[in-house]
Write a protein that binds this DNA or RNA. Structure first.
Lengths: 207, 207
DNA sequence: GCCATAATAGGAACACGTTCTACGTCGTGC
DNA sequence: GCACGACGTAGAACGTGTTCCTATTATGGC
């Protein structure tokens, strides 16, 4: 698996290589359809034929844009994270300590997810099931999460986070993901999820 | 979904309700076949027809013992964890500090897993994909992991771990799971996985 | 031993992710 | 205009997880 420059023809269309307006439009329709189906019925309801029908593209076209159901769902997740991260980037994050601000960000994000449990289930499942071929999309999500957390730790834009900041952010991200998986799969309640995250942040960010 | 006493008839056979010797034997053959197929070819190679053939049971029988591929693989994982936990329970865990002993346990376990990458991929994938219907098996695995870690923190058998111990153990477990997923799905190397876990343990167990 | 019932074998059938084939359409260089 | 190649449509086909059905075989109570 080489890491060369992606070919712009004959390959699946990525977020970067957007193609024509018609292609951008198709891509959006597909992601919207995915989002709607996932919100209403979760992972199982996102059936490739249903997505294709709902987005009014042929099955083969769907597969040209997203080479698998997992790519499709992780791309939808990345789009949601981008929206979320943009929101936090624009707002002032409340809290006097790093721990408080981080907890604010996580709770806010988690609450958003828990408001759409089926959607969250679909996106989380896809994320956990993704293999190396989805590395690009996964990496996008990971960067956005780390960036959100380090910004919450240091709201002053002007310096880069330290290695320790990034390490802490990654651990928090890990805990968050595990908690999300436990919640999504019905193994813990929303309240337990929140409490566990608070505990973890408390352990990691004792000033 | 009630939580009543499981019916012993007409339901799938659990680890507790072992049934006759012939049934225990079948269950073992099935798990052994699963193990072998997973070790050689990973998640995709564990095909229900192949497991049934290899274990010399009919497909319907396989489904009577394990209601889905995920149940099957998570049960295999639980068996492996039980073996692993028993090993640690018998041995003296080296290291002067809690952090050193925890890292020893994690590295030893991780090394074992990384020695059989395909097997690990299969088991981890199944674990991450499991839903609420696999809660029992998942819980078994979680308890074993927490128990291994708290024992490493406090090698003296005779007192129960504190809440804080359990909280730390759970966070470490989360990090470990995330790292395993990243490794299994080809998103990080074995070395990165080890380093990340050491960092996390260092952050959580600074004495 | 014999019967009732549960368990198993064997395999067809179905669902959904994925691939493939055949054909139509659009847009670009000439 | 028009030929050509990339793109799109429609849908068949295939693989594997899961369900279902029927006949056969164990098993346990009498």
């Amino acid at each position: 698996m080489t890491m060369g420059v992606p070919m712009s023809t004959t390959n699946s269309l990525t977020a970067d290589d957007l193609g024509s307006a018609a292609q951008r439009e198709r891509r959006k329709r597909i992601l919207d359809a995915t989002y709607d189906l996932a919100r209403d019925g979760g992972f199982d309801a996102v059936q490739m034929r249903a997505v294709a029908d709902s987005a009014e593209v042929a099955l083969g076209t769907l597969y040209r844009y997203f080479p698998s159901k997992i790519h499709l769902l992780v791309s939808a997740l990345a789009r949601e994270f981008e929206r979320n991260e943009a929101l936090f980037r624009k707002m002032e994050i409340p809290g006097d300590t790093a721990a408080e601000r981080v907890i604010f960000v996580m709770k806010r994000t988690t609450r958003g997810l828990q408001g759409d449990p089926k959607l969250t289930e679909a996106l989380t499942r896809a994320f956990m099931f993704a293999d190396a071929s989805v590395a690009t999309e996964i990496h996008t999500v990971g960067m956005l999460l780390t960036s959100m957390l380090t910004r919450a730790m240091h709201p002053d834009d002007d310096h880069e986070p330290t290695d320790q900041d990034v390490a802490i952010a990654r651990v928090i991200g890990d805990v968050w993901l595990s908690a999300l998986v436990a919640w999504v799969t019905g193994r813990s309640t929303a309240a337990e999820t929140g409490a566990h995250m608070e505990t973890a942040v408390g352990l990691l960010l004792r000033d």
